[in-house]
Amino acid sequence: MAHKYNVMIVDDAAMMRLYVSSFIQSLPDFKVVAQASNGQDALDKLETTPEVDLILLDIEMPVMDGLEFLRHAKLKTRAKICMLSSVTVQGSPHAAKARELGADGIVAKPSGTVSHDLEEKSGDELASVMRSLVAA
């Protein structure tokens, strides 16, 4: 079996976690090893799941938001960190801030359309970014 990269999903929306994890499970080269509903939860889970290769990170979360977690994670794990932005603005202030803090990648959260192509439209970008990050 081909090697799979370990992914942690950090998002306070359970539906988003499910959506993203379901998508990742359809990828041959990734697997979800942890999910967290906020930054503090993610820090705790990093303690028990240290071998994470990639963290998909939401920004707006209770308890500890994504930017705050990013600071911790940059020091506490070698995992690549990809921000899941709720706006499709790569040059947004949030993105710039995340970049400044050391985010390795930024990708828009998926958005569906009438044309049934949830995977095709948003998944391609996510998969592409994920692969480029772990390959770097």
């Binding site: 929306a13 539906m15 988003m16 959506y19 707006e60 709720s86 958005s111």
Partner: peptide, 17 residues
Amino acid sequence: ALFRAVHTFKGNARVLG
């Protein structure tokens, strides 16, 4: 909390188009 609640709701609606 109010902001996050609406933000989450919005994001979920967005996912489903």
